[in-house]
Amino acid sequence: MEKNINITLKVWRQKNAREKGRFETYQVKDVSTGSSFLEMMDILNEQLINEGNEPVAFDHDCREGICGMCSLYINGRPHGPDDGVTTCQLHMRKFKDGDTIWIEPWRSAGFPVIKDLIVDRTAFDKIIASGGYVSVNTGGVPDANAIPIPKPDADEAMDAASCIGCGACVAACKNGSAMLFVSAKVSQLALLPQGKVEAARRAKNMVAKMDELGFGNCTNTGACEVECPKGISVAHIARLNREFLKAKVQD
């Protein structure tokens, strides 16, 4: 049943990358449990603007869980207390009347804070630019039966491709490692014929870029997999290890 709840927010406020941040406490009253978490943030910002204060800066775009833009570390978990959803898909029905909700930005050396809850995730774009694509000309769209691909491979490639690059894996990792992200991007192509051509170069370049940007080393705790809104499996990390080691041995 929908109802209205009153909540207390502890929100990280930080003017810019250089200045020290702090938590501010806000009260938000009469929030419908049917509203989404980001709608609640909008209500908070309306409130702040009406009071003549600066609204809280946070990332968001599609608000349907496919763009990877929203982030937020809510009450001890990336994307909040629900499983398998992004922050924009989180609803206020997951909270109770009188709750105190902590809202923090992703914390990792690879993701410096730009302002308030927004972090700089261009490191992911740089990793993609280092090899997360197919550069061979595959021509026009071929007939579906022209290159047979085993169903399990196609499924696994699609599962890997569901990574939206939100960075929850890095935010959850005690090592600030980007291995789940990189492994998904390597897997989605390494499993398919068009991607296999450049598999070795891709694995080497993407791992080198990941290391260069200061992401940590994976210790296989599996926290990333638990917090991934798309349920990307750490089995992809084993594949990335295989692809990378194979490429290095071939050199």
Binding site: N75, S108, G216, A223
Partner: peptide, 23 residues
């Protein structure tokens, strides 16, 4: 890894479930 994690800690702790203590 500690360097990659950065200096800032989460104030709301870590409530990720299903991760073994040993790991």
């Amino acid at each position: 890894n500690r360097k990659a994690r950065g200096k800032d800690r989460y104030a709301s702790g870590n409530k990720t479930s299903g991760v073994t203590w040993a790991s």
